[in-house]
């Protein structure tokens, strides 16, 4: 019974996180939602790890470990970028899809 409980809670967490990541206005809320999204999937992975016949199946755990590593690095990257934005929200200044009004794009980068 418990694997079903874990799996369904995992799905629920995933659904909520998915909803929030698209609708949250603030950058930090989005990043947290992204983390939760990862958490949800890992919960499901762990839930399916129980093989009634052969006991615990190690592969999902390996997957979860790798997943966590990836998720952490993605979150770190997102936070670093968020710090640079200092308060402007994601959609600020996002007036035209091509951002034609912004300052001249001087060729700085290679």
């Amino acid at each position: 019974m418990t694997p079903l409980l874990y799996a369904s809670s995992g799905v629920a967490v995933f659904a909520i996180a998915l909803y929030r990541i698209f609708t949250a206005g603030d950058v930090l809320r989005k990043i947290i939602a992204a983390n939760l999204l990862g958490g949800g999937v890992f919960l499901i992975l762990v839930a399916i790890a129980r093989r009634p016949a052969a006991g615990i199946d190690p592969v999902p755990h390996a997957l979860v470990l790798t997943g966590i590593v990836v998720s952490v690095s993605a979150t770190a990257c997102a936070l670093a970028l968020a710090r640079r934005l200092e308060g402007t929200t994601l959609d600020d200044g996002d007036d035209g899809d091509d951002g034609s009004d912004d300052t001249e794009v001087a060729g700085r980068g290679p």
Partner: peptide, 21 residues
């Protein structure tokens, strides 16, 4: 280039994450 490169990068990331998850 440009001042809002980080904003574009973050948008790019936050859109890509749900896809991969």
């Amino acid at each position: 280039e440009g001042p809002d490169a980080p904003r574009a990068a973050l948008r790019y990331l936050l859109f890509a994450l749900p896809g991969s998850l």
